[in-house]
Every structure is written in structure tokens, then in C-alpha cells.
């Protein structure tokens, strides 16, 4: 596979696109591993953050693809502990955001991460139409998407009895404005890489 196919027309590596779109330069990474060391999710990751940093540094299409196909990028919780401790001040959560967008765009989402993606999608769809999160609707939507019918079925009545579940969504006054924002954001440059 030539890099021309993998990347945008200018033969750029993923690291180049990342730098252009987000200003984050992963070439600064010197593999100290402090990010992975403090990551609450590192144990479950196929490639902890310092490893995918190195993979991206090589600029090799096969390794870039492996990163985009990895589960790791979806497991990042954006807790920012890596970023605040990174000696090179690399905004790693921002890199993860970028990689997720690229992974989704290219259809490389790891099978085990699809539920996470479905959840995010259900979440955004909920606010796309109502402006505010309609928790019940979102969860139902997520269940339809993930087919996880039984999960949380036992907690829901408890929540309801405690007055924690709204049965009807709250809508913002100008749903059109919301849709306009979504439409504009869909043209985000990052989403196109």
C-alpha cells in the first residue's frame, strides 16, 4: 500500500496530519514511558500511549494502520494524567481524539471498541435533536445499537424510584441552531483525514 493511498493527497504521514490539524508534535516524544506508566487504562491497552507514539513516529503505513485499528485509542478516558506529567508537554488526549476521528473515518474501529463508539454516537444523537442529554432516550438508543438489552436493566427502576430518570426529554428553544452546529462540525478537517 502506498502512503499516497493511506494519507491525504500530499503524501503526509499521520504524524504530519496530526501536527497540521492540532499543532501537537509527536516527534517530541522521547519514549520515556511516563504516560503509559500513569495511565489507568494501560493494562488493558494493546498499545499503551508511549507505544503508539513510537509507531506513529516511524511514519510506516502498516504501523499507522495498526494504531488506528487498535483498541487502545478507544480506551483513553481523557483523564489527562498523561498530559500533566509528560515531560515534553505533548497533549496525548488530544492525539487520541485525533486518532479516534481518523479511525472512525477510515472504518478501522476495533471490533471490541464498537460499543464505545456506539455509546458516543447515541450520546451525540441525543443532543443533536434535543440540545440536552436525554439520558433515558440515549440509553435506549445505545441498547438498540449495541443489542445489550439486559445490561443495566436492574439499575433503572432504582434510579427511577430515586427520581433520577426523566421520562421526557428537555428540548432547547432553538433546535435549528443545534443542527447548524452539528452540520458545521461535520465538515471538521480532522474528520476528513
Amino acid at each position: 500500500m502506498s502512503t499516497a493511498q493511506t494519507h491525504s493527497a500530499q503524501n503526509l504521514t499521520l504524524a504530519d496530519c496530526l501536527l497540521q490539524e492540532t499543532g501537537v508534535d509527536i516527534r517530541r516524544c522521547y519514549q520515556c514511558g511516563k504516560c503509559s506508566a500513569g495511565c489507568p487504562m494501560a493494562a488493558e491497552m494493546d498499545y499503551p500511549s508511549s507505544v503508539w507514539m513510537r509507531m506513529l513516529q516511524t511514519g510506516r503505513p502498516d504501523l499507522e494502520k495498526a494504531v488506528l485499528k487498535s483498541q487502545s485509542i478507544w480506551l483513553c478516558l481523557s483523564c489527562e494524567s498523561c498530559y500533566v506529567r509528560c515531560p515534553m508537554e505533548i497533549d496525548i488526549p488530544r492525539v487520541a481524539d485525533f486518532l479516534r476521528a481518523a479511525s472512525k473515518r477510515r472504518g478501522l474501529v476495533h471490533p471490541r471498541a464498537r460499543n464505545i463508539l456506539r455509546f458516543h454516537t447515541a450520546f451525540l444523537d441525543s443532543i443533536r435533536y434535543t440540545g440536552r442529554l436525554y439520558e433515558m432516550g440515549m440509553v435506549v438508543d445505545y441498547k438498540v445499537r449495541s443489542r445489550k438489552w439486559w445490561q443495566d436493566l436492574l439499575t433503572a427502576p432504582g434510579l427511577f424510584l430515586r427520581g433520577k430518570l426523566n421520562l421526557l426529554p428537555h428540548r432547547v428553544k432553538h433546535p435549528k441552531a443545534m443542527r447548524k452546529l452539528f452540520k458545521w462540525a461535520a465538515e471538521d478537517k480532522e474528520a476528513r483525514i
Binding site: 514511558g33 503509559s36 506508566a37 493494562a43 499503551p48 500511549s49 508511549s50 507505544v51
Partner: peptide, 11 residues
């Protein structure tokens, strides 16, 4: 809390 970067950044 550290990581071994020679072992796939294993915690």
C-alpha cells in the same frame, strides 16, 4: 508506578 518501555510499556 512505572512502566517498562522495553516490554510494550507494560505497567
Amino acid at each position: 508506578q512505572g512502566a517498562d518501555t522495553l516490554l510494550n510499556a507494560m505497567p
